[in-house]
Design a protein around this nucleic acid. Sequence first.
DNA 1: CGTCTACTTGACCACTATCAACGCTGGTGG
DNA 2: CCACCAGCGTTGATAGTGGTCAAGTAGACG
Lengths: 258, 258
Amino acid sequence: MPKDTQTLNILVPNKTGQTHCSTCSLSSLCLPIALEKADLDALDNVIKRGRPIQKGELLFKQGDPFKAVYAIRTGAIKTFTVASSGEEQITGFHLASELVGLSGYSEDTYPLSAKALETTTVCELPLEQLESLCDEMPGLRKQIMRNMGGEIRQDQQMMLQLSKKSADERMAYFLLDLGSRFERRGFSSKAFRLSMSRVDISNYLGLAVETVSRIFTRFQKNELIKTEGKEITLLNLDELKQLAGQPNEPVVCDKHPA
Amino acid sequence: MPKDTQTLNILVPNKTGQTHCSTCSLSSLCLPIALEKADLDALDNVIKRGRPIQKGELLFKQGDPFKAVYAIRTGAIKTFTVASSGEEQITGFHLASELVGLSGYSEDTYPLSAKALETTTVCELPLEQLESLCDEMPGLRKQIMRNMGGEIRQDQQMMLQLSKKSADERMAYFLLDLGSRFERRGFSSKAFRLSMSRVDISNYLGLAVETVSRIFTRFQKNELIKTEGKEITLLNLDELKQLAGQPNEPVVCDKHPA
DNA sequence: CGTCTACTTGACCACTATCAACGCTGGTGG
DNA sequence: CCACCAGCGTTGATAGTGGTCAAGTAGACG
């Protein structure tokens, strides 16, 4: 069993006959803008790929020197910050094709930790090489900046959720967001697996575990969703969407049944 | 009186004998890394500077085409997103020397609006020129990316505040954060002017106005702060800091006096 | 001086956290 | 093989923090 607190450090340069960017089914999601074939190969050469990271293992730890950005190939990652007082805040769940670690750019160390939610494989982009590639390839630089901009936008969206929305609204938003991200990867947006625990969900949404559990129960009773352990099916997308954001007409969700 | 909903559009290229980057007292904060003199001049030439923006005027509006990044020279700006349901969430207050608009990089439009809290002057960096400058000057690119990384880090800090901290803790955090940012600019960290309204503060912190008002009153009663309208003095930094984050020993704040 | 907005204060109660107990599952060791 | 335990998830009872509603005050500006 890998030590829970050990930061991953075993990725190897891409030399073996492994996956390449040019053949990766995720390349269009990971780096959506068109890169020249030559550029793609150059990028490919700096990427390190290694053995899978096991559930619970850390990809990097808050305070570690910022030395790489990671693209998720398979699996799922959670990122979280730890306040000086010890409280943890999960800042995001990251699925295949997404980049992790960009916020390291602010300082020379990562301002957050990244932990695998399940067995996960990643592509490591060492900072040094990435930097020089960016200098040579304006397209790549722009792509990275778009990614960072997207993360800012997403975090600010989350601030709105945390400060303005009720527990039900946050949960609906969370489920729909996950669904649309699965859809983007070619999976069903209505039936998927929650790789994170209830505790993780509650932490991310700023709620108590018990509240999350109760909402799942109530949503099921009202036939909005169906859950079987970590498997979930969204049964009534329309109502969920109304709950999540567009309350054209107030939705009665049987909040406090008599 | 300027139309409240009109986006600013009157900045002119730097040709008159105005301020220059090389003589700007903020340059070390705005772009802390060393730029060559020639680079600084090149940057200087693409910056547009214009008449001050009046209180309440918009620098840019959510949905506007992303065409520039702004550095604040004097004054203060608030940025906010509007959800489809109409709720506003203030995502940040920005003081002199800070960059605004970087999140535009995620799409081709700004994902938020920026409004002046008081009469404000800005330096506009048109995107097109900024892009080509970045291609030529690796130092500038890195600087911009550091700024974006910093914004991500800051937003994630805020997520923690919004989801894990009590109203008192958020307020203490907010006041200390403002103080330290004023200090960085050479002003007192303990006595300054809150250029934003109570409503703005409450929105930013995810609280009701009434709660903010009550906390100000209670903090004063306990001699943590002193307020006179928008002027505020932090009287007991130690206790505020304990409240904000490092509860080595639980602080009794006379929360609900008998 | 009147009006409008910003701010403050008070009363009330809803939402959600907290505390407690229990069932389930998977892993470990006797 | 089974007993035990730890971790996760669910459910119930209770109470506190902070929201909402309402009213009043003070400050800004014409």
